[in-house]
């Protein structure tokens, strides 16, 4: 994957070597893996479920499962693939649970937000506020995506994974990944075009 923590870049020990050491009983190796992946996983899950507290709980549960099931990891896959698969499955379970308990309703936030007056950035003294609003709108648009599009968009466009690794994490064919990324991007563009639309006479 493209995104790596600073610690991950500095260390010469690979994730796979660390999990192998942990499988032999070296708990410090587990701690290093936690430090390498905790923030990456948090961002992945946060974009998935849209709630920071829930996201952190899911990351905790992910590492707990890694700890308890360390012997299930086989070196045929990358450690990142394995840990993201666990985290992704937990996130999907959480979304299904919310749907079941009806505590999560797919809001019409995007349509409502169309009433927002998005100021022209070039002339606004409050760029920071605008950026925050935009971020919120983008996050809502991501949450509104169907799960199968959401997971590939987060992994590809936010987390920077290669298509091949996404295919392994989600256990779906490479062609399906590419197709879903394309449809997900088009869906996002459709939902967010009000943010980026230009007047016809200003188009190049």
């Amino acid at each position: 994957m493209i995104t790596k923590t600073k610690e991950g870049k500095k260390s010469s020990i690979t994730d796979e070597q660390l999990i192998a050491r942990f499988q032999l009983g070296d708990v410090q190796a587990f701690d290093i893996l936690v430090r390498r992946y905790k923030d990456q996983l948090l961002n992945f899950i946060y974009r998935f479920v849209g709630n920071r507290s829930d996201a952190e709980d899911i990351v905790q549960e992910t590492f707990l499962r890694v700890y308890k099931n360390k012997h299930y990891y086989k070196e045929i896959a990358k450690f990142s693939t394995w840990v993201y698969t666990i985290a992704g499955n937990l996130a999907k379970t959480e979304l299904r649970r919310r749907k079941r308990h009806k505590i999560f309703s797919v809001s019409n936030f995007i349509n409502e937000e169309r009433d927002y007056d998005i100021p022209d950035k070039e002339h606004s003294p409050e760029k920071k506020v605008d950026s925050s609003i935009q971020e919120t709108i983008i996050q809502k648009a991501i949450e509104k995506l169907p799960i199968k599009f959401k997971e590939v968009i987060i992994l590809r466009d936010i987390q920077g994974f290669a298509y091949e690794e996404i295919s392994q994490i989600l256990n779906i064919p490479l062609g399906t990944v590419k197709s879903r990324v394309n449809r997900g991007r088009l869906k996002l563009q459709e939902d967010l075009k009000f943010l980026y639309e230009t007047e016809p006479n200003t188009r190049p």
Partner: peptide, 23 residues
């Protein structure tokens, strides 16, 4: 054009960190 902007925006979304007592 919009797809390019959205792709760039997704990459630039602010990163969050776990709470200090996470470990």
């Amino acid at each position: 054009r919009q797809m390019k902007i959205i792709q760039r925006s997704l990459k630039q979304l602010p990163q969050i960190s776990v709470s200090p007592d996470f470990e």
